[in-house]
Design a protein around this nucleic acid. Structure first.
Lengths: 114, 114
DNA sequence: ATCGACGGTCGATAAGGATCGAACAGTACG
DNA sequence: CGTACTGTTCGATCCTTATCGACCGTCGAT
C-alpha cells in the first residue's frame, strides 16, 4: 500500500476543465507566481519551484497550493524518485481556453504584484 | 448630500489594475456569467443584466457582485436617471492584460458551466 | 406629494480557503 | 539500518466571501 493517495498524482481530463475553477486557482498571488515561474523555467520540483517563485511559505501551504493548481487542471505532477516534478498543462489549457494562459503569463509584472 | 457614496460610481484607474484581483473577480460563476452577458449584449442596467445572465439571486447579492467587478476594474457604472448602466472596460483591460478578456469571453460554454 | 421601480448599505449567517506546525510515508545514500 | 530529504495529510485557527432580508435614498411618473 502506498502512502500518498492516488489523488495526489492524478489530474482532471481535458473535458472536465472548468473556467471558474481555473480562474480561482490562478487568482491567488502565490499560485500565480508559481505558474509564471513554471512558464519561464519549464518543469520544477516543488521546493525548487517555491524558490523560483519567491514564495516564503511553509511546505504544507505550498503543497496545498500545488493541489489546487493540479485539481483545476493547470499543472501536472510526475513522480521522479523522491521528487515530484511539476509542469504546466499548456496544450490542454490552450484547447479549452485559447489565449488564457498566454495572457496570464505574459502580463506585465507591474500589474501582477499587488 | 447624496445617499449612495461616491465609491458606488468610481472605479480604479488603469495603472491600479491587478491581475490577482481581476482573476478573483472573474472566478465566481455569477460574475463570470454577468461579464459574458455584458460582452454579448453591450451595456445593461443591473436588473436587466441579471436577467440576461440568468442569475436567480437577490438584488443585494447582485449589488455585491457588481461592486467586486467594478473594484477589480472590469466594469464601469454610469448613472442614467434611476438606472445604473454597466459596461465592460474592454480597452483598459486590453491595455493591462492583452487577450485576457477575449479568452474568458470566447471560452466554450461547455467549459464554463460547472 | 405619493407611489413604484431601481439599487445601495447594513447586519447576520454560513461556507470556504489560506496558513501553520506536527506527524507521517516514500526515496536515496552512507 | 539509520539519517537526511521530499512532499503529503491532519487538525486548528483565522480571515475572507457569498448569500439573504430588511431598510433607506433617488428618480420618474401620476
Amino acid at each position: 500500500m502506498r502512502f500518498m493517495s492516488d489523488a495526489a498524482q492524478t489530474y482532471p481530463p481535458v473535458e472536465e476543465l472548468r473556467l471558474p475553477k481555473v480562474l480561482a486557482a490562478l487568482a491567488d498571488p502565490a499560485r500565480l507566481a508559481a505558474v509564471r515561474a513554471l512558464a519561464t523555467n519549464g518543469e520544477s520540483a516543488c521546493t525548487a519551484l517555491q524558490m523560483e517563485a519567491g514564495l516564503r511559505i511553509s511546505r504544507s501551504t505550498f503543497s496545498h497550493h500545488q493541489r489546487i493548481l493540479r485539481e483545476a487542471g493547470i499543472i501536472r505532477a510526475e513522480v521522479r524518485g523522491a521528487q515530484r516534478i511539476l509542469s504546466l498543462r499548456r496544450d490542454d489549457l490552450d484547447i479549452c481556453f485559447p489565449g488564457l494562459l498566454e495572457a496570464v503569463v505574459s502580463a506585465d509584472a507591474a500589474h501582477v504584484t499587488g
